[in-house]
Design a protein around this nucleic acid. Sequence first.
DNA 1: TTCTTCATGTAATTAGTTACATGATTGA
DNA 2: TCAATCATGTAACTAATTACATGAAGAA
Lengths: 210, 210
Amino acid sequence: MSSDPALTTTSYAILGLLSVRAWSTYELAQQMDRSLGRIWPRARSKIYEEPKKLVRLGLARAERQLVGRRPRTVYAITEEGRERLVAWLHEPGEGPVLECEQLLQVFFAESASPAATLATLRAARAWAVERNQGNLAAARDYQSGAGPFPERAAQLLLVGRFLTDYYRLVAEWAGWAADVVAQWPEELRDATVDAEQFAETVRRADWNPD
Amino acid sequence: MSSDPALTTTSYAILGLLSVRAWSTYELAQQMDRSLGRIWPRARSKIYEEPKKLVRLGLARAERQLVGRRPRTVYAITEEGRERLVAWLHEPGEGPVLECEQLLQVFFAESASPAATLATLRAARAWAVERNQGNLAAARDYQSGAGPFPERAAQLLLVGRFLTDYYRLVAEWAGWAADVVAQWPEELRDATVDAEQFAETVRRADWNPD
DNA sequence: TTCTTCATGTAATTAGTTACATGATTGA
DNA sequence: TCAATCATGTAACTAATTACATGAAGAA
């Protein structure tokens, strides 16, 4: 039974966490804030809701406990849940989806003052620096053998490396872009574009897929 | 009137396009597919809906035309629309949001076979190669002065460079990760993690924000 | 004892997606 | 003149967000 009612990727994200161990919803929410949320960000309330669906479908079990007089729920994966998770892991997943308001603002920079665009770029850089901080701390923890779930270190290394490179890319791009914008005239339509910069972008894009 | 009813970032994306010129909804949808969608992806039906909201708020004007017996709508920005757009450009925007199912699958790789993870990584690489193709073609067009809206070249260069570097990052990461996974034992729990790889990740993350 | 932060949710709303439908145009 | 594709939308649905609410635990 319960077989197919398609799960969303968010369902699988939760199911995956449950495959590691049982969690209370609060703990799940924390994982989302601290680690999983970097690659699959969702609002907290979603994290409280989604497990109920898993239970309805027989993919997880809920154990209600009491903390004082207050109820709390701890979720664990079922055998069937594991099967569904494995099936998903063997299906092709969606490629990375990027969504960036700041980039959008740069895209329409001609309607703003260069100063505003500069501020946007500084914010982008600050964002990347801050994210990188947390990421670096986590990497250091694993390096010294202190990270949680050491048995998952191999996978976490792969994802960690992606994020490391990603934050660095954002920071370096924002720095470079800010230097370019600093040269812009007040009225962007009057800007002349350095041919060399297009050439460099083309060169950078022109790696061959071997 | 109409003043504040908060717009979504999607509204601003459309408003921004309208600030460049007037478009029919079909043309707007195409822009989303081909260019804007790389940094602010939305379903086509949304693109047909959103301009109506802008019209209700007095930020755009709709002109209904006839193609044969079929109606079509062309949207243009109003003065008030321009003001709202400028105001948005001067506000701090959200940082980049990344959402990646493939990365999630790698994150939970211990529940799958290494072969499945390899397949995921190959797919990620293929995705990046394909996206890069389009991006490279566009960059070449601008380099030879052939791209649309040459007066917007300065901004487009900045965004184009981000995408170039981003696709490259994904491709290189996926290639590197595939090499690592190729060394994994059938049962991932038995994998030993090369200390040097953690060290390298830490080194890469340890740039100083000057 | 009171304040703050941690912990645990629910309800209301909305942004966004998938699916459907159909006229116009073009090339075989 | 038929099929395929371009062009133009609407309707139904759902995933996700924001806002609200409150008990427990620890600090001052």
